[in-house]
């Protein structure tokens, strides 16, 4: 069975043509994540977490190396092909929710379906909204929802096209600890139901809840393993 994600010698270098300001944000990463895994990516600020996230999310192309998503090399796709991959095979959950303010919860959830022309978008969106327990808030605007509810809507939106992997960037960063806890539980439930989950976070409490933790430093993988092993050996000040 092919891996969900397979990175080989992945590099992302900004301003490579100007050596004095060039930044090696991702500097040779080899990483394999299998279907159904739940992986936390941790590391200090500037370690390349965000850049890796953008590469994994097909928002950006690597400078070098290869990225196989479910066996397909997506590192050299053109803009439209990348858009299609983002639409169908990747779900995004952001720290700041990124919902459209003028669209109701249901419409926000249905938005990805608008770009993939499926039948009955409203019905599908409603089903996913039900799964995150917010069907009674379907007609509300984001401004009428609490932070936790907004993040649930965002999670529903990321799931609506049944993606293979779910990428969450600090999903609890804008929430209080109790609400954050609920969001983590929801993400773990989704993972238990088969969705591959990758969470980028500073929050070690969150990272501990996942089965595998990858620690980055200076654009490279510094440690990779179960949380008790990786986080125990973490040097002070990693958070």
């Amino acid at each position: 069975m092919t891996a969900a994600i397979q990175l080989e010698g992945l590099e992302k270098i900004y301003h490579e043509d100007q050596p004095n300001i060039a930044v090696r944000a991702v500097n040779g990463i080899d990483l394999t994540i299998n279907h159904g895994e739940a992986v936390a990516i941790v590391g200090p600020s500037g370690c390349g977490k965000s850049t890796l996230m953008q590469l994994l999310g097909c928002l950006d192309r690597p400078t070098r190396g290869s990225y196989r998503l479910e066996g397909q090399n997506v590192s050299r796709l053109d803009d439209d092909e990348l858009a299609h991959v983002r639409n169908r095979r990747i779900g995004f959950v952001f720290q700041s929710f990124n919902l459209l303010a003028r669209y109701s919860a249901l419409e926000n959830v249905a938005l990805p379906l608008m770009y993939s022309s499926v039948d009955n978008p409203a019905q599908r969106a409603r089903a996913v909204l039900e799964r995150v327990g917010l069907v009674n808030r379907a007609g509300h605007l984001p401004s009428e929802l609490s932070g936790g509810q907004k993040q649930r809507v965002a999670i529903a939106r990321s799931l609506v096209n049944q993606p293979a992997i779910l990428l969450a960037d600090e999903p609890t960063g804008a929430l209080d600890s109790r609400t954050g806890e609920e969001i983590i539980q929801l993400l773990l439930e989704l993972n238990a139901a088969g969705t591959t989950l990758i969470v980028v976070t500073h929050d070690l409490a969150l990272a501990r809840k996942l089965k595998r933790v990858v620690r980055l430093r200076d654009g490279k993988v510094e440690a990779d393993g179960p949380p008790e092993q990786v986080l125990a050996e973490a040097p002070a000040g990693v958070q």
């Binding site: 928002l59 919902l99 990805p112 770009y115």
Partner: peptide
């Protein structure tokens, strides 16, 4: 946001 969830250029 639209691009992230699959809008083409």
């Amino acid at each position: 946001i639209r691009m992230a969830i699959g809008a083409r250029r």
